[in-house]
Amino acid sequence: MALVALLSNPRSSGNLSQLPRVRSFCANEKDIFHYEVEEVGQIAQAMRTIARVRPKVIVLNGGDGTVQAALTELHQGGHFCGSPPPVAVLPNGKTNLIAQDLGANGDPITALERVLELARTDMAPHIVERELIALSDGKGGERPVLGMFLGGAGLADTMLYCRHKIYPLGLPNWLAHGLTLVLSLAGVLTGRDARFLPPVSRELTVSVTRSGVKQGRFSLLMVTTLQRLLFNGSLVPAGMPGGSMQMLLIDRSFPALMRAFAAGMSGRLGRRALAGVHLERSDEIRIEGARSSVILDGETFEADTGRPIVLRPTAPVPFLRLAA
């Protein structure tokens, strides 16, 4: 039996430089069982093996896509008798949204030392529960994919543009993200489609339970169950009625984007209505549009006319929060 099981993806961007340090650290710690995968298809076998060592906590060391695939297998693969152990996430990858939500920032070795410290004591005060987003076609024929952050509409187009056009330039992450943001805002401001700009977002229909249908072109669609995201706060105020999934939808309009940005920076987002800015909490969201991409924790899915993507929350699952 191991106190900590660490699942690493050597191909995630952060691990290209950090994995040798992680391997060296684990080699000197008898309480860590370290398993490496080369591709997402190996995660099922990894979870079967990890279940045999009965860890007290599972640590995920990879980008958001690795975390998404591991969470899906952990909670739907049936490898653990009863409830799976809590999950901790090391800071890694290009966005680290899930790690940041769970208080893991900075150096991954420091975070791993903190996990060991907690695992050797009573972890109960540090266990937090989060719902996951279950993405499916709504028909129940296939196993849903689980994650915690979804981007759609113009946001998904911009993320894909950054992935395929900007990252290959080899720029530092902060510069790649900044350049993508500037070009994205230029596209919204001009309203034109140009080869050097992210594509103009497609028509989209977003149906929210108890709230109705919103249709049009949107510069940003976010759905999340993370508690810390936008400016270190909740995306949607906790007092807003509805379900556990938070949604922010912004019309394709430069003034609407600026109103949302200013409200977020001042901590007033959601306190009053803003033209072109839609905030919701829901237990079911349907996204439909002709070849419209959404990205769930790094993995891309496509909705189409008559073939919507359906989002529902899962029951709460345990995570290990590293912050004091």
Rank of each mutant, 00 (worst) to 15 (best):
M1S: 10
L3D: 11
L3G: 11
V4E: 05
A5D: 10
L7C: 05
S8T: 00
S8D: 00
S12R: 00
P20D: 03
V22W: 02
R23E: 10
N28V: 07
I32V: 15
H34N: 06
E36G: 01
E36N: 02
V37F: 00
V37Q: 00
V37L: 00
A46T: 03
M47P: 13
V53T: 15
R54V: 08
K56P: 00
K56F: 04
K56A: 05
N61A: 00
N61T: 00
V67M: 12
V67K: 14
A70E: 04
L74A: 06
G77N: 09
G78N: 10
G78T: 05
F80K: 14
C81M: 13
C81S: 15
G82I: 07
P86N: 05
P86K: 09
A88M: 02
N105P: 00
P108Q: 03
L112A: 08
L116N: 12
A124D: 14
H126W: 15
E129A: 08
L132M: 15
A134G: 14
A134E: 05
G138D: 04
G138A: 09
G140F: 12
G140D: 10
G140T: 12
G141W: 02
E142W: 02
E142K: 12
E142L: 11
P144H: 11
V145G: 06
V145Y: 13
G147Q: 07
M148T: 14
F149Y: 10
M159T: 13
M159C: 14
M159Y: 03
C162A: 15
C162D: 07
H164M: 07
K165W: 13
I166E: 09
Y167R: 14
P168R: 14
L169R: 15
L169Q: 15
G170F: 06
L171R: 11
N173F: 03
G178W: 05
G178C: 09
T180H: 08
S184P: 03
L189M: 13
R192V: 14
A194Q: 12
R195I: 03
P199T: 10
S201P: 15
L204G: 04
T205M: 09
T209V: 02
Q215W: 02
Q215P: 03
L220P: 11
L221S: 05
T225G: 06
Q227T: 13
R228W: 02
L229E: 00
L230T: 00
L230G: 01
S234Y: 07
L235K: 02
L235M: 04
L235N: 05
P237F: 04
M240T: 13
G242I: 02
M245R: 07
L248F: 06
S253Y: 06
A256R: 11
M258Y: 10
F261Q: 02
A262G: 08
A263V: 03
M265S: 13
S266H: 12
G267T: 04
R268V: 00
L269W: 06
L269E: 02
V277L: 09
V277Q: 10
I285Q: 07
V294T: 05
D297N: 11
F301Y: 11
G306W: 07
R307E: 07
R307L: 09
R307H: 14
I309P: 08
V310F: 03
R312H: 07
R312T: 14
P313F: 09
P313S: 12
T314I: 03
V317I: 15
P318L: 04
P318D: 02
R321M: 13
L322A: 12
A324N: 11
